[in-house]
């Protein structure tokens, strides 16, 4: 172990082929073994992410249909035909509108509630483990499991309506075309909030304590400090929360599939991914479904760029 600190040790090349000369003889780097170690992961990324990503775009511009394995068929290039077919369908337009409603409720609510709870949790001195566990539990639990409770809570004669009494919406939440999508948005906010609290807690550790102290000596109260120090201090985390909650929202599938029985009532809570499943896999139009997916991703990327522009500031 003494050799650790002796200077020559650092210049001795690692075990393996004897050193001949400079770096030029090593086209794969100093320890090519690293490439071998990473090879399974690289193959995985190419196979499961890169190739399907390209394939998806290719499918969306071709006449693509399911065939028996190994069958060779002609899949002609059709330009934007699949996109036209997709967006001539009112149900598709509706699903994009639905996801917009979802995002308008879910994203701001997520940012405000998770920052509020993370700030409170960060200052808490008692029962912190209990609080942490209770905040994260919905996030770690399967959506399918908690959806079951929400159906029970929000159905016609459910506990929520029992408490609300005459204020309960009619028809009830999940079968009401006005309330179905907002209810799903509330559910997802509740379900995912723990993860964003976790991100904000990490960010809060990085806000320098001196800033609070100097704000305090300047006479700023806690509320002032929150807006003058905390909010700008966690801005990078806010950009991340905006991005992740938007991407998660655009991926919405399980909740409309189960909570509202497949995007009901009458498509009022259908999400684009649900429509992709129905068109692509149930009705055998993978090309149209791929086109919907491409448009959805382009829109999400656009929203993410706008968020980054306006919430990201100069960093």
């Amino acid at each position: 172990m003494t050799s650790v600190i002796s200077p020559p040790a650092a210049t001795v090349p690692p075990a393996g082929p004897p050193p001949r000369s400079g770096k030029r003889r090593r086209p794969l780097g100093r320890t090519p073994l690293g490439l071998l170690f990473s090879a399974p992961y690289l193959v995985f990324v190419l196979l499961v992410f890169a190739y399907p990503l390209g394939y998806s775009i290719w499918i969306s511009f071709h006449d693509f249909f399911f065939t028996a394995p190994g069958a060779v068929v002609d899949r002609p290039f059709v330009g934007f035909d699949n996109f036209v077919t997709a967006f001539a369908d009112p149900a598709v337009i509706r699903s994009f509108g639905n996801v917009a409603i979802f995002l308008l409720i879910n994203v701001p609510l997520t940012v405000v509630l998770s920052l509020l709870l993370a700030t409170a949790l960060n200052r808490a001195t008692r029962a912190t483990t209990f609080l942490r566990v209770s905040f994260y539990v919905p996030y770690v639990t399967a959506s399918v499991a908690v959806v079951a409770v929400w159906i029970f809570l929000f159905n016609g004669g459910g506990l929520v309506n029992q408490i609300l009494g005459p204020l309960a919406p009619d028809p009830s939440w999940l079968i009401n075309s006005q309330w179905a999508m907002p209810t799903i948005a509330f559910f997802v906010t509740w379900k995912q909030l723990g993860f964003y609290i976790l991100l904000y807690l990490a960010a809060l550790q990085g806000v320098p304590k001196e800033l609070y102290e100097s704000a305090s000596t300047d006479g700023a109260g806690r509320v002032r400090q929150f807006f003058a120090v905390t909010v700008p201090g966690v801005r990078p985390a806010t950009v991340l929360v905006l991005l992740v909650s938007t991407v998660t929202g655009a991926n919405l599938f399980t909740e409309p599939y189960l909570l509202t029985g497949g995007g009901g009532p009458n498509g009022a809570s259908a999400s684009p991914v649900l429509i992709m499943y129905q068109r692509g896999l149930q009705q055998g139009q993978p090309d149209v479904a791929a086109a919907i997916g491409v448009v959805l991703v382009v829109l999400v990327l656009g929203i993410a760029l706008l968020q980054n522009r306006f919430a990201g500031g100069k960093d």
């Binding site: 399907p52 998806s56 992709m276 896999l281 791929a290």
Partner: peptide, 15 residues
């Protein structure tokens, strides 16, 4: 980590 699954759903199913 930012590749959305909705874009991969159809091609992964096909593959």
């Amino acid at each position: 980590q930012v590749v959305p699954f909705q874009l991969l759903m159809i091609p992964l199913y096909v593959l």
